[in-house]
Amino acid sequence: MNIFRLGGDLAHLLAIIILLLKIWTTRSCAGISGKSQILFALTFTARYLDLFTNFVSVYNSVMKVVYLAAAYATLYLMYVKFKATYDHNHDTFRLEFLILPAAGLALIINHEFSIIEVMWTFSIYLEAVAILPQLFMVSKTGEAESITSHYLFALGSYRALYIVNWVYRYYSEGFYDMIATLAGVVQTVLYCDFFYLYITKVLKGKKLQLPA
């Protein structure tokens, strides 16, 4: 565990907490894509199938449980408790366009053709594009609340920090995982446009509004 990996995990945790707190305190999930949240729940479920078969550390197991619980709690808040505030008219991205290619690619390009390995690979590919429905929603409405922007910034920073972690691990341990790294780069690139808007607008106290 290095500082970049820890920073990535904490940024991820922060993003999840920001989202849950936003929904809970405002009693509303307006502006949040339920489609992206479904994809994140699916991602964690497919990736952490090894929760009971592969013990790494207490830290690892606790984080896995927290990510899974938070993902399903978010879905519960969006689709059950505060369903009336869910902005489904603007959340029109077709999930099969992301799930099917991710599943197909996982079957073809993986480290080993076993159920647990293919599911892990599927989760890596799916996570890379899981934010697209949310970004699509922001582009459709042309704006995002500040709190939603903070959520997206923390979530985007997480994989960016993981990339630094992978570079560090390559030089310090000779460890590398091409699938995770390439997917992580794709994932981070998808946030670049948002990062630019966040830094030039939100950090200067303005609302995130897309140029007309």
């Binding site: 991820h12 090894d50 590398y176 995982d177 995770a180």
Partner: peptide, 10 residues
Amino acid sequence: SRKTLPKDEL
């Protein structure tokens, strides 16, 4: 290409 098993990242 993976050098370590099992997976230790999240």
